[in-house]
Computed example of a mutant assay.
Amino acid sequence: MAEQPPASLSTVAENYLKVIYSHTEWQPDAMTSSQLAARLGLAPSSVTEMVRKLTAQNLVEHARYGTIVLTATGRAEALRMVRKHRLIETWLVREFGYGWDEVHDEAEVLEHAVSDRLLDAIDVRLGHPAADPHGDPIPAADGSVPALDGVLASALAAGERGRVLRISDRDPDVLRLLAAEGVGIGSVVEGAQLPDAVAGHVWVARTA
């Protein structure tokens, strides 16, 4: 059972936990400090200090020079932020006409300001969506997340087909390129159809 988190986490702490969770969501390898620093665009020394604080708060476990793993408490907090982020992205696309390449940065700001009450209202308004516009699953209010089963499109052999499950939202240019090519969630693509620089951003379920 997860211990109680600190009464109020800082925005920085919430961002760290969300990034650490997201790193292992679609692949099994735990995150290293250098990967976390690169993902956040911060100096390794700054990341080391923050990870030390998160460890002291029982939010992560981190052996010296080892990987960073969320505790049960840290995972619960990460899922709370991930739920906020993805519901807000979906809300911006459906209700305000944002493009799927425009919502990530907006959600990064709004997720720290939206109350749980407003978030629940957004969830109801949207009909309790299961996934965000990029195919990432939206955790339920109880923290449960459906099992994920997909491979990168770059893993498809020539002529092998896969149905698009998820497209990373980290690079808006990739999202715009795929939209221009008519590729979205649910599209069927073939191995070698997508350029290497794009295939590494797309997860698919192999089809017969």
Rank of each mutant, 00 (worst) to 15 (best):
V174L: 12
D136M: 06
I167A: 06
V145A: 05
L156C: 05
V204K: 05
D169V: 02
L175A: 14
L175N: 13
A208I: 04
V198Q: 04
S144P: 07
D136L: 06
S168W: 06
A158W: 06
A179D: 15
V124S: 07
G162H: 02
L177S: 12
A121M: 09
A208S: 09
D149Y: 03
V189P: 13
P129T: 01
A155T: 10
D123A: 05
D149A: 09
L165E: 14
I167E: 10
E160K: 11
L148K: 08
L119W: 09
D136G: 06
A157L: 08
A153C: 07
A205K: 14
I122D: 00
A121N: 06
R206M: 04
G184L: 13
A147M: 09
V204F: 08
I138G: 00
G150N: 08
V204T: 08
L177M: 11
A153S: 11
D169F: 07
A192C: 11
Q193R: 13
A179E: 15
I138A: 02
S168M: 10
D196P: 13
R170W: 10
G135S: 08
A192L: 09
L165N: 14
V188I: 15
V183A: 06
V198W: 00
D149W: 00
V183L: 04
T207Y: 07
V151F: 05
A155P: 04
A147C: 06
V124N: 07
V198L: 03
A192Y: 10
A179H: 15
H201I: 02
R206W: 02
Q193T: 08
W203Q: 11
V124K: 12
S154V: 03
D132L: 06
P172Y: 13
A121S: 09
A141H: 03
E160T: 12
V183W: 10
R161F: 06
L177Y: 15
S168L: 13
D169L: 04
S168D: 13
D173S: 15
D173L: 15
G200Y: 03
A140E: 06
